[in-house]
């Protein structure tokens, strides 16, 4: 965030004409998103607090894992959000490469750190769950390894998108990395079915019944919706900040040019 305020590329050039640019330009996004932010924040905090407290205090202990199963209420939502976040990153990258859309570039830049954070939470809580249950913090099975790869893809994206003096070059390079890395998503999801893993299989399934008792399912779902909302709120707020920061730079630059 410390790039030269007077850099020429700080002037946002927002082409208009196509439907995409008319309805998703950064200025319009700012006008629509800013009033929604307090509501988004309130809902995400309330749902997350309800889900986490329900899981930590009120949900029943598991027959097999006892209280250790409570780690599920933070581990699983974090894992889902880390994957959904990467999918969102890939979609932004797709719009960035094909349509050169400025909002998609800014969104990709802001999704990276938030997604990496959730992936980190998923890895740490998973390690803390693995030690007492499996007997090991970490094993190199397909599920754990592919999630670690996801974390490194996020870190690579964060670094690459900020690595160039010309921001456009960073956007293109990072978008390509994000799209290539998207092959990792189906690998994470299906790793527990394709190969023998120490990691358990899927508990929640949309096709068949979920293998979880109802008073354990509710806190899990509420915490998940809460985490998704947190992700949405954080990315929206950071995206609004980024747009305003750019606007500020552009105005300062214009003023400097008038003065010169």
């Amino acid at each position: 965030m410390t790039d030269n305020i007077l850099a020429p590329e700080a002037i946002p050039a927002y082409p208009t004409g196509s439907w995409l640019h008319r309805y998703a330009n950064p200025g319009r996004f700012l006008r629509l998103a800013q009033p929604a932010l307090p509501w988004l924040a309130a809902f995400s905090i309330i749902l997350t607090v309800i889900g986490i407290v329900w899981g930590y205090v009120f949900a029943p202990a598991d027959w097999e894992q006892g209280n250790a199963a409570r780690i599920m209420y933070v581990h699983v939502p974090a894992a889902w959000v880390s994957m959904a976040g990467y999918a969102a990153l890939a979609v932004c990258s797709f719009f960035s490469i094909v349509w050169r859309h400025p909002l998609a570039d800014l969104a990709a830049e802001e999704i990276g750190p938030v997604g990496a954070g959730f992936t980190f939470v998923c890895l740490i809580s998973g390690a803390l769950w693995g030690k007492p249950m499996w007997g090991a913090y970490w094993v190199w099975d397909a599920r754990l390894t592919s999630v670690l790869v996801l974390f490194f893809l996020y870190l690579g994206h964060i670094a690459l998108i900020r690595a160039f003096d010309n921001r456009e070059h960073g956007y293109r390079a990072a978008a390509i990395l994000a799209l290539v890395g998207a092959v990792n998503l189906p690998i994470i999801v299906f790793s527990v079915q394709w190969w023998n893993t120490l990691h358990q299989g899927n508990t929640i399934s949309f096709s068949g019944g979920s293998k979880i008792y109802v008073t354990m399912l509710y806190p899990l779902l509420i915490a998940s919706v809460g985490f998704y909302m947190c992700f949405l709120t954080l990315v929206t707020a950071r995206l609004c900040s980024a747009i305003m920061e750019r606007k500020t730079r552009a105005l300062l630059l214009a003023a400097a040019e008038r003065g010169a």
């Binding site: 930590y56 809580s125 769950w129 954080l234 305003m244």
Partner: peptide
């Protein structure tokens, strides 16, 4: 192990919400 998992999660969420809020306010 349980408290550690919840602790790191809450710490992360509070931290990133705080940082984002500070950045947003200063941008405005």
């Amino acid at each position: 192990f349980i408290d550690g998992s919840y602790g790191i999660t809450v710490l992360f969420l509070v931290g990133i919400f705080g940082l984002t809020y500070v950045r947003y306010r200063s941008a405005v």
